[in-house]
Amino acid sequence: MQVTIVERPEMKAAVIRIPRDGHKVREAWKEVTAKMEGHPAVADRHHGLVFIPEWQWETEVIMLWVGVEVTGFDSLPPGLEQITIPPRKFAKIAVKGDRDRMWETYSFLSEWFRTGPYERDMSEGSLGYEMNPLQPVNPFEIPADKIDFFEYDIYAPIKVAAGVDGSGVDRED
């Protein structure tokens, strides 16, 4: 497994907030896509996003936001919340494999933060996210209790630790 430090531009998203539950993630996805179908503000029709409130890692992640990236918030359908993530650096790691491999990837990322020069930004208001490709298979269309293969990227926001200059950062636009 490999963690890459990437710099991402500002991201806006139209989302629905839900309890952390795979079934509710899929219900929210269906609602978001129904509301946003054909909407001109959708910036990325190839990925679905699940946002993680980073401050919840201190205890337990109990809430998520599910949605799509948008170019702006004008004329969004009712029932969608708005999220803006400022330009910033993230630790990016790919999840690819079965459920055990998914949990191994999260553990690897946690250990990487614990032992490396970067600190995960778990301050109030900081959001990480999972970027799920919707092709060739849309993972949100597979029931939570049936899905047995995961393939997505985790973007965990970072703070640069003292003495680290941030060099070696890849830029993703």
Rank of each mutant, 00 (worst) to 15 (best):
Q2N: 11
V3Q: 00
I5N: 00
I5R: 02
R8K: 08
P9Y: 02
M11K: 08
K12A: 06
K12H: 08
A13S: 15
V15T: 08
R17V: 12
V25Q: 02
R26G: 05
E27K: 08
E27N: 05
A28K: 00
A28L: 00
T33E: 14
A34N: 07
A34P: 07
K35L: 14
K35Y: 04
K35A: 10
M36G: 10
M36L: 15
E37K: 14
H39R: 08
P40Y: 01
A43C: 05
H46Q: 10
H47V: 01
G48N: 00
G48E: 02
F51Q: 02
I52A: 06
P53C: 08
P53F: 02
W55F: 12
Q56P: 00
E58K: 15
T59P: 09
T59L: 06
E60K: 13
M63K: 15
M63D: 15
L64N: 08
W65I: 08
G67T: 07
V68Y: 04
V68R: 13
V70S: 02
T71P: 05
G72C: 12
F73V: 11
G79S: 04
T84N: 09
I85Q: 01
R88W: 01
K89P: 04
F90Q: 00
A91R: 02
K92F: 00
I93N: 11
V95Y: 03
G97M: 09
D98K: 13
D100G: 13
D100T: 15
E104P: 14
T105W: 00
Y106M: 15
S107M: 10
E111D: 15
W112E: 06
W112C: 09
R114K: 11
G116A: 05
R120N: 13
E124T: 14
E124W: 09
G125F: 03
L127W: 02
L127H: 01
E130S: 06
N132T: 08
L134A: 10
L134I: 15
Q135D: 14
V137G: 07
P139T: 05
E141C: 10
I142Q: 03
P143V: 04
P143R: 07
A144H: 06
I147V: 13
I147S: 09
F149K: 10
F150Y: 09
E151H: 13
E151I: 12
D153T: 06
Y155Q: 00
P157D: 01
V160S: 10
D165N: 12
S167Q: 10
V169N: 02
D170T: 15
D170S: 13
D170G: 10
R171Q: 11
